[in-house]
Design a protein around this nucleic acid. Structure first.
Lengths: 132, 132
DNA sequence: TAAAAAGTGTTATAATATAACATATCAAAT
DNA sequence: ATTTGATATGTTATATTATAACACTTTTTA
């Protein structure tokens, strides 16, 4: 299965809706708090929904922040690699959509006798709005 | 201060010794367990030592694994950026020592109106030993 | 040698995430 | 339509990772 148009369950849709509405990274327990009115009552319900959403590429985890963000790309159905630009001033996170990153990393890895499969990239700096 | 030859305290040296001996990433509570005979008794003592060691660049955190590894580079005194090659088969971790990564990322970031400062890169794949 | 900065030891607790188990739902193929 | 297998749910409990707060000590530096 695992098509990108896969139908989501109630809990999964609830969590995804919240993340898409937010457009900022949210932490799991913040998601839990914000979805209680929608019937989500326990951490596991959040984590299970997140696991599924990550698996189908609708959500990414920002590892260095323990937070989760809805994928900006339409019909994203891959959970393989992530690349983020994280503003150290305002904490805004956007995705770096650079198609040639994987091949660049594959090349770099090869030089270390390492077979590239996927990556997480978290770039820290200052976003457009905060440089003003 | 913050010189690379900075003198370490007992706890800091104990934690660093263990990580250097291990040459594999260790988790904080594994470090705690393995340093009890050296007088470290509480999580905070480990985390404080790690914080300092990370600050002076002797240790890096692997964010996606919540684990810590001694820096492979001599006299490393920067805590800015990290780049890892993580084997999905044997869990071995090595550092990708690519001097031009920061400038490459700076260039990519610039195209998104983002001012690059530092990065964490975690590449997953298969190491040399495991491809045999 | 006093003041400032950094580190220590300790207890408690916060924040993040998973285990285990019984039950329920749904999709596919007889 | 009904079994079957996979997936999801609800729930309680617990594991894992990390920090707060506070009193005290050591080291550095002016």
């Amino acid at each position: 299965m695992a098509l990108s148009a896969e139908k989501l369950t109630n809990n999964q849709q609830t969590v995804l809706d919240l993340l898409e509405k937010s457009k900022e990274p949210l932490k799991a327990y913040a998601i839990l708090y914000d979805t209680q009115k929608k019937g989500i009552k326990a951490p596991l319900q959040v984590y299970r929904a997140l696991d599924k959403l990550i698996e189908i590429g609708k959500v990414h985890k920002i590892e260095s922040r323990n937070s989760y963000i809805a994928c900006e790309h339409k019909n994203c159905n891959s959970s393989t690699s992530t690349s983020f630009l994280i503003c150290e001033t305002c904490d805004h996170v956007s995705e770096l959509t650079q198609k040639n990153l994987p091949s660049y990393f594959a090349k770099q890895s090869e030089q270390a006798d390492f077979k590239y499969a996927k990556h997480n990239l978290e770039i820290y700096g200052v976003c457009k709005d905060c440089t003003k």
